[in-house]
Amino acid sequence: MTAGKRAVAVLISGRGSNLRALIAAAAADDYPARIALVLSNKPEAEGLEIARAAGIATLVIESRGKARAEFDTEMDAALKARGIELICLAGFMRLLTTEFVQAWYGRMINIHPSLLPAFKGTDVHARVVASGVRFTGCSVHFVSPEMDEGPIIAQAVVPVPPDATADNVAEAVLEQEHTLYPQALRLLAEGRLVIEGQRVRIRP
């Protein structure tokens, strides 16, 4: 069913844990998206090897020493040249320019390891444990110019027991991420997501 599948680029900077889950989901005949490209801003990113092992095209555009606008312009051109329709950020540790985000708005999603709008940014799990909250989780959202602020597509909840550590919370959240992200990409590729202000409506 490859002919009808939407072409997706996964942007990574590191190990590619969520990338592996997306590749596995996209292998199903009835999945509406295909991972057409894995792009990294770091040549040493482990996720590039995961992509190559799966026979997926890879591209490295190094961000070191480049202004954000220069890097984003180069990346935008590369994605368009390869016919990319949708973008998944999966551990892509690079802030994107407003111009790039606006150009791909509604077609670019990210996964964040908390129940947004709580615990935006980095060092999430340590902050979760320190805060004493009883629940955390993960969120898939559309990417907007403001970090971790875009309309939320889907969330999964993870309990935080009293003896939790940042490491075991991270492990539990990651397990949920690997299920939630492919589900959200499916909805996007099927054209079932409608952005209404800061809310996302899911068509039947």
Rank of each mutant, 00 (worst) to 15 (best):
residue 109 I to T: 13
residue 140 V to A: 04
residue 118 A to Y: 14
residue 142 F to V: 02
residue 133 V to E: 10
residue 198 Q to G: 09
residue 134 R to P: 03
residue 180 L to R: 01
residue 109 I to W: 07
residue 149 E to Q: 11
residue 117 P to G: 04
residue 185 L to I: 04
residue 134 R to L: 00
residue 165 T to W: 10
residue 106 G to T: 07
residue 187 L to Y: 08
residue 187 L to S: 09
residue 167 D to T: 09
residue 137 G to T: 14
residue 163 D to Y: 07
residue 192 R to D: 10
residue 197 G to S: 07
residue 141 H to Q: 11
residue 165 T to G: 15
residue 132 G to Q: 00
residue 179 T to Y: 00
residue 127 R to M: 09
residue 166 A to V: 03
residue 109 I to V: 15
residue 111 I to P: 11
residue 152 I to G: 07
residue 179 T to L: 13
residue 135 F to W: 14
residue 181 Y to S: 02
residue 104 W to K: 03
residue 141 H to V: 02
residue 131 S to V: 05
residue 137 G to A: 14
residue 127 R to F: 13
residue 168 N to R: 03
residue 152 I to K: 12
residue 157 V to I: 15
residue 140 V to T: 14
residue 184 A to I: 03
residue 192 R to I: 14
residue 139 S to Y: 04
residue 108 M to T: 06
residue 197 G to M: 11
residue 133 V to Y: 12
residue 183 Q to A: 14
residue 176 Q to F: 05
residue 166 A to L: 04
residue 139 S to Q: 06
residue 128 V to M: 08
residue 139 S to G: 11
residue 146 E to F: 06
residue 150 G to Y: 02
residue 195 I to R: 12
residue 121 G to K: 07
residue 111 I to H: 14
residue 181 Y to W: 04
residue 123 D to V: 07
residue 116 L to R: 11
residue 197 G to P: 03
residue 185 L to M: 14
residue 176 Q to C: 01
residue 150 G to Q: 05
residue 177 E to M: 04
residue 172 A to D: 14
residue 170 A to Q: 07
residue 124 V to P: 02
residue 151 P to G: 04
residue 109 I to G: 06
residue 138 C to S: 05
residue 110 N to S: 15
residue 170 A to K: 06
residue 154 A to E: 11
residue 172 A to G: 05
residue 159 P to G: 10
residue 130 A to G: 10
